[in-house]
Amino acid sequence: MKHRHTPRRAALQALSGTFVAAVLAGATLSPGAAMGQDYPTRPVKMLVGFSAGGGVDALARMLGDRLAKPLGQNVVVENKPGASSTIAANTLMASAADGYTVLLGDSSLLIAARAMQNVSFDPVNDFVPVAGVATAPLALAVGSGSPLQSLEDMARTAKSGKPLNFATSGIGTVHHLAMEHMQALAGIELTHLPYRGASALLPDLISGTVDMGVLSAAAAMGQVKAGKIRVLGLTSPVKGTDWRAISDWLPGFDASPRLFVLAPAGTPGPVVARLESELGKLMTDPAIAEELVKQGFVPAFRSGKEVAADMSQELDRWTGLIRRSGIVLK
């Protein structure tokens, strides 16, 4: 028996074929891949664990401004200061894993995860690294009238039995643990004098009230130019200065704070890849690199996988130093 293909039947068959094709296409495109293609469709929030006006905040706002154009959406910086960035980290952990909330963090977050009591997040399992963007070298400095002329001179003095102290911006900071790391490698003992922030220790460093102080390389530059302090060594090399890196004296020394972008665990891979790609383009732009250097940072783009490896190594190093030093943060 023959069937007549009426216009109505033909239309239904065409509609059915279109529906099946659409279903099959949807089956081959995972939700994450689809999100990666469309992402972002609304503003992205970048959390910062420090107050507005600081160095990390300034970096976040610069990144946010520069990311807005390629992403086609605004990147809004939201400050969540306090508790060594753990407030910001907890906010990130509680956020949806969709790429619309990320965190610009630094090494202090990893230290807090191992030194603080009752930390609710695991930096390895609760977050996914997106990219590394920079390092922030620290300077070990003395007042201009100090008798200490070099790192070797400092070590000889300490080993002779003469007490030496150093000031930092607080217990358990990267500044503090950098000095613990240096002491362990050099086989010396120094007395730690914690201050409430770098600005508080600077007058005592200049006057010679404290023997040495650890501050950001950016903050040290202006004081060195004014003839008020001298830099004995840096936690990592800084272009444009003749300051010595501590690693030149102590091979294996590595303590510069690293800055990286994290997203909540479970964020779709295509979304993470999009953010990583755009950050990579930014960090290899000479104009942006120059701007970062002016702010005291060293541009250092790292892929998400590289950041994961860096974080693992840092956590091992900080954990060992924290245990040896008996540091416990509340």
Rank of each mutant, 00 (worst) to 15 (best):
M1S: 14
R4I: 13
H5G: 00
A10C: 04
L15Q: 08
L15I: 10
G17C: 09
V23C: 09
A25T: 06
A27L: 15
L29K: 13
G32W: 01
A33K: 13
G36R: 13
L47V: 02
V48L: 10
G49R: 05
S51H: 05
V56K: 07
V56N: 13
V56L: 13
A60K: 09
M62P: 00
G64W: 04
L67W: 06
V77W: 04
K80A: 14
S84L: 02
L92Y: 04
L92W: 03
A94M: 13
A97I: 09
Y100I: 05
L103A: 02
G105I: 02
S107C: 05
S107D: 10
A113R: 04
S120W: 11
V124T: 07
V128P: 03
V130P: 02
V142Y: 12
L151Q: 03
A155M: 15
K162S: 08
P163Q: 01
F166K: 13
T168Q: 01
S169P: 00
G170R: 09
V174M: 11
I188L: 06
T191Y: 06
R196G: 15
R196F: 02
A200R: 11
P203A: 03
S207Q: 09
V214R: 00
S216N: 12
A218V: 08
A218T: 01
A219L: 13
M221E: 15
Q223M: 07
V224L: 08
V224G: 07
A226T: 01
G227Q: 06
L232T: 08
G233N: 06
W243F: 09
R244D: 11
L250W: 00
S256Q: 10
S256N: 08
R258Y: 07
R258F: 04
V261S: 10
R274L: 03
S277W: 08
L279S: 04
D285F: 01
A287K: 15
L292Q: 15
K294Q: 14
F297L: 07
V298P: 07
A300D: 04
R302H: 08
E314W: 11
W318C: 10
G326P: 05
I327C: 01
V328I: 15
K330A: 14
